[in-house]
Amino acid sequence: MSNILNLRHSVLPGFRLSFGITLFWLALIVLLPFAALVYSTIGMGWDGFAAAVSSERVLAAIRLSFATAGLSAIINLVFGFLVAWVLVRYPFPGKRLVDALVDLPFALPTAVAGIALTTLYAPNGWIGQYLVPLGIKVSFTPLGIIVALTFIGLPFVVRTVQPVLEDLEKELEEAATCLGASRWDIFRRVIFPATLPSLITGGTMAFARATGEYGSVIFIAGNIPMVSEIAPLIIVSKLDQFDQQGATAVALVMLGISFVFLLVINLIQWWAARRHGAR
């Protein structure tokens, strides 16, 4: 460490200044809000905290948030990989348009996405009217939440996997074929492991985004307590009732869980990177 900080003769100038600004900026933008969150929660004492976060309704919401986020991330992993694969591998008319379409969930205001999805999937909506007779209810159920979260998470997976697939030389597959590998073997043993780190990254981002998603979910979810009420909504409604401490308590729990998830995923990535020859 002292080595890094005492680079007197580094070729790149301005290390101290830029490092100082980096630390200051991270503290201001990232750490300070967290500290405020913790500080505010500490004020309510352990009993108040436990009471605020252990109510059935809060627990159900937190469980729902992470479960739907997880499921939508998994769906996005599968279909995002497919989309990236098609975009990289095959030339087809309108490819640029499709490529641009992938970014739409990024660019669209989330409330717009929520309204659009609700219009589609409401019992009298374009798609909903055909699904209801089949016994499938999308809007106002956890399924609707998954649909919304899948929508907003798609670009994360596609945009992280796409460049990696583009960089994957055709020769690798040719080499594997010459060695007698079947298509399935090539996918399983050559392509998939090479894209795994980017899949993990993309999946993590989609998951993280989905846990905190609010705008696109609340319309389609219907927000029925214990059924389709997500944790961010609990936080908002607590704030609406001027229960700021209660809101920060729930927020802190979500922060804790998210942190553990990210830590685990980072460990997995670190392990995967080591398998790649530590470069």
Binding site: E169, E171, L172, A175, P193, A194, H276, G277
Partner: peptide, 8 residues
């Protein structure tokens, strides 16, 4: 360019 499998 060798085409070795980097993750192996």
């Amino acid at each position: 360019h060798y085409a070795l499998f980097r993750h192996m």
